[in-house]
């Protein structure tokens, strides 16, 4: 009897460590493609879609918080190709990826912020869409930050305030 109980306990311990359920990434032979995470069926509308669509349609007011968020998200999603300064001088183009245009190009300076949001949403040429990883609100934040980069790309160092020039010299060294 005691032995049976021990055996049951041992079995239970194994069961607990690998419970009969599909976790994320676990193979799931039940489905044709064998994955536990299934793509949504065609025509499915994601929960919260109207709210996201509304966020995407309306440009938020420009605030320091929006720019900060934009800088952080730009560093994650865009810097590998477009570079920290936005001149298209990222590390991935240096390894053979077609170089993206500099944001300082007159055509891109003239483009409205919604165009940048649209490029993030749908991609452009060889650049893929980032819609799966950059939330609608963050797309506007990045667009605002790209505007800031465009300003900085066109500003001669001599026009900067004294304090910023000192910082620039410090960073250059």
């Amino acid at each position: 009897m005691r032995r049976a109980t021990l055996l049951l306990l041992a079995l239970a311990a194994c069961e607990m460590a690998d419970q009969p359920r599909y976790d994320a990434y676990e193979p799931a032979p039940l489905f044709p493609n064998g994955a536990s995470v299934q793509p949504p069926p065609e025509g499915a509308v994601a929960r919260g879609y109207p709210a996201r669509a509304a966020t995407l349609a309306t440009r938020p007011p420009l605030t320091p918080a929006l720019l900060d968020r934009g800088r952080e998200r730009y560093a994650i999603a865009c810097v590998p190709c477009h570079g920290i300064a936005g001149d298209g001088d990222g590390v991935v183009p240096s390894r053979g990826f077609p170089p993206p245009p500099s944001f300082a190009e007159p055509r891109l300076r003239a483009a409205p912020a919604a165009t940048i949001v649209d490029v993030i949403t749908h991609g452009h040429g060889v650049m893929y869409s980032y819609a799966d990883r950059v939330a609608p609100a963050d797309r506007w934040a990045i667009a605002a930050y790209v505007r800031a980069l465009q300003t900085s790309l066109g500003t001669p160092a001599a026009d900067l305030p004294e304090a910023d020039r000192a910082k620039l010299a410090e960073a250059g060294r």
Partner: peptide, 8 residues
């Protein structure tokens, strides 16, 4: 992966 490896 393909965002980069479609080209390199």
């Amino acid at each position: 992966c393909m965002t980069c490896h479609s080209q390199i």
